[in-house]
């Protein structure tokens, strides 16, 4: 589904954020990407739907080369859902309008169809009563659930999560993770940048550990939590699991 091979990316002439990153996400697989801040994990996931350009290597998404200038990027992006750290709901639109806009303007669905789909997804994330509110009237956890519903409304073939719970208060993290766990159980292909190791151990198939722009470890979940091979991964795990 997602093939990342030998991706190199530089900011400016000297600072290399991604170093020869190679990995893949198969259909129905849930892959968690973790690592210390500044390790390039967010950058990597944003390269997958070309929100960030990269200079070398290639990424193939459902058979389509992302970094090919001939690729119709809007069309490709419409097929992959993305959830951001800071939700990025559209503050000037009501919740239901947030869910309908791209369905109508990108997929060409009728307003009725889009509304029906939007309402169904709001129900699924438990926010039916909030449909006519504006994003600012919702809590962070609710906003992030709307953001997930907004991405799902496009019937994506895969979902990318960029630290979906990092900006949330602790008591709101679980309501968002619950939605993500359900998604994983339904067989959604997911690439998730997160520090939530509980989530990783519950639903991930594989865990990728990144440090300083490199993929240091790319292992099955059991191997990763059992005995990470690299010292850096061991240190990282002991730091985030110790408290």
């Amino acid at each position: 589904m997602i093939e990342i091979s030998h991706v190199n990316k530089w900011y400016g002439p000297t600072f290399q954020v991604l170093k020869d990153c190679t990995t893949s996400v198969a259909k129905g697989e849930v892959v968690v990407v973790c690592g210390p801040s500044g390790s390039g994990k967010s950058t990597l996931i944003k390269c997958v739907n070309a929100l960030e350009p990269f200079q070398e290597g290639q990424i193939i998404l459902d058979g389509i080369k992302v970094n090919d200038p001939k690729t119709d990027l809007p069309k490709l992006r419409a097929r992959v859902g993305m959830v951001f750290q800071h939700f990025e709901l559209f503050p000037h639109l009501r919740i239901i309008e947030n869910l309908c806009l791209a369905q109508e303007k990108v997929l060409g669905r009728s307003h009725g169809e889009a509304m029906a789909k939007g309402e169904k997804l709001l129900e699924r994330v438990g926010l039916t009563v909030q449909a006519n509110k504006y994003p600012a009237e919702l809590s962070g956890g609710q906003q992030q659930r709307v953001a997930i519903a907004r991405a799902l409304a496009m019937d994506p073939i895969a979902m990318l999560f960029d630290e979906p719970t990092s900006a949330l208060d602790p008591e709101m993290i679980s309501e968002v993770l619950d939605v993500m766990v359900d998604l994983a159980h339904e067989g959604m292909t997911m690439m998730v940048v997160t520090h939530e190791m509980g989530f990783a151990s519950k639903v991930a198939n594989r865990v990728i550990f990144m440090d300083k722009g490199e993929i240091v470890e790319d292992a099955l979940k059991t191997d990763f939590f059992g005995s990470p091979r690299s010292e850096r991964a061991q240190q990282f795990l002991s730091k985030i699991l110790s408290h």
Binding site: L51, P74, A78, G81, F84, F90, K105, V106, M154
Partner: peptide
């Protein structure tokens, strides 16, 4: 993040301007 979210949903540059950025 706003135009990025719009792009991620598949909106073109023009659509992102028209529906997301310029109204705000």
């Amino acid at each position: 993040g706003q135009p990025a979210a719009a792009s991620a949903l598949g909106l073109t540059y023009a659509q992102s301007m028209r529906y997301i950025v310029l109204p705000q």
